[in-house]
Design a protein around this nucleic acid. Structure first.
Lengths: 104, 104
DNA sequence: CGTTTATATGTTAGTGTATGAATATATAAA
DNA sequence: TTTATATATTCATACACTAACATATAAACG
């Protein structure tokens, strides 16, 4: 009745950090909206700001955050920078969870 | 070159809230460790605290948090309360993400 | 009832995060 | 090279979150 505790193998710290970071990226409504938008196709920063009614600086902040986690990528075209999603797994997870939330 | 903005249908606020809440639950390392532990089988509060080396009050707080989101459930046996996971979808998502993090 | 054990809750200090205003940088066009 | 446009960054601030300690509640049992 006492030995049963011993079996569980803990997650290593590195994995724990990566996983929690990933979920943290998805825990903010603004980032969720941006990622959800980008799951379809690429958009420029100003397009994102206009569509989602956000300040440009806010969009830039969140895109940097997402870029650091390699959840989005970008390409430049003149002065315009187009962002798109860069992690199929995360996008799939997001869409599944949205579906799940809509059909509860 | 201007009309392409109009198509995107925004997530409604309720869904956005539910989804971000769910991910927020998973964004904290302590809650992740607890949920990961509970994905196998049920454990009492004191067992969780001992296995994960957490303060009892901390475990209780996190369990209440997870319970409010219906991610865990519990049953009482005398003074002991056993908690177990209560959302297959979230557990699956967690395990997939752990797997993904381990094999990158 | 009083005591012990298991769990829950209130409170608070420290830390982290999201946002916006102002400003800087970068590219293109004139 | 000046000007306009798009994006990034810096800085300040308000707010949220985590974890710990202290305390309360609830059940079991003598």
């Amino acid at each position: 009745m006492n030995e049963e505790k011993k079996q569980y193998e803990e997650l290593d710290e590195e994995t724990l950090f990566v996983v929690s970071q990933t979920f943290k990226a998805l825990s903010d409504p603004t980032r969720l909206r941006i990622l959800s938008l980008l799951s379809n196709r690429e958009y420029s920063v100003s397009q994102i700001a206009e569509i989602l009614q956000l300040k440009q600086s806010n969009v830039s902040h969140q895109l940097r955050y997402l870029k650091n986690l390699r959840l989005v990528k970008f390409r430049r075209e003149g002065t315009t920078i187009y962002y798109s999603q860069d992690d199929e797994h995360v996008i799939r997870m997001l869409q599944q969870t949205i579906y799940h939330a809509l059909h509860r």
